[in-house]
Design a protein around this nucleic acid. Structure first.
Lengths: 115, 115
DNA sequence: CGGAATCCCCGACGATACTG
DNA sequence: CAGTATCGTCGGGGATTCCG
């Protein structure tokens, strides 16, 4: 049945959405994509994120094997992209491309304002 | 600066995420992808969604020109995919592909259970 | 049948302060 | 420096009910 197939696809989509969809995850991945970073570097890099949220997002991303954690010393921890994490880049590229096109479509026609 | 560029990309990603990321939007789009549907058809098709949420999601998708609304009579309204909406399909395909691969990666190694 | 109004709940997110 | 604990809030959904 095609419907069952579609259900499976939806699950996949939801998973991916969950990974890159949060307010911070995209930014974190983008930052780490550049190069490996330490906790507080990341904190500054990402913007105004609180440590609680940052550590939570990092754990999530680590669980999903998109990033790795490297604890050289208790006060020296680095996070880095895994190969799997890096494999996200082309996908992000495709999403960005469509998003750009989408913006054009939306802006190309006037919107009716609610009366 | 590369960072500014990345910020723009993040915006695009967030937009796309917003479109297909909700709990229902993906399912709605998938359902309409098949063929045009009436309100209550959609309601059954999508699962246990309440009318309030459905109408809200439909309006959002319509605003974003992904679907169209066709009111033949006050009691006969159909929704259908626009060409722009259909242009999402390849992107969804790419996302599904990555999601599938991701699932394999996640399942391929044992997870440590929290103590 | 298609849609709108009301009420409510819960879970994600945030600020702040503290510890190893 | 890296991470945790506690508390507060805020808003997206959901159930239910009613309207044209």
């Amino acid at each position: 049945m095609k419907n069952k197939h579609k259900q499976g696809q939806l699950r996949d989509v939801q998973d991916v959405i969950d990974i890159i969809g949060g307010r911070w995850r995209g930014a974190i991945l983008a930052s780490l994509c550049d190069r490996e970073k330490r906790f507080n570097d990341l904190r500054r890099d990402v913007g105004e994120i609180t440590p609680r949220i940052l550590i939570k997002e990092l754990k999530y991303l680590e669980l999903n094997k998109l990033i790795g954690r490297n604890e050289e010393a208790p006060t020296k921890v680095s996070y880095y992209m895994t190969p799997h994490g890096k494999s996200l880049e082309p996908l992000i590229g495709a999403i960005v491309a469509w998003g750009r096109k989408h913006r054009e479509v939306i802006l190309s026609e006037p919107l009716e304002v609610t009366p």
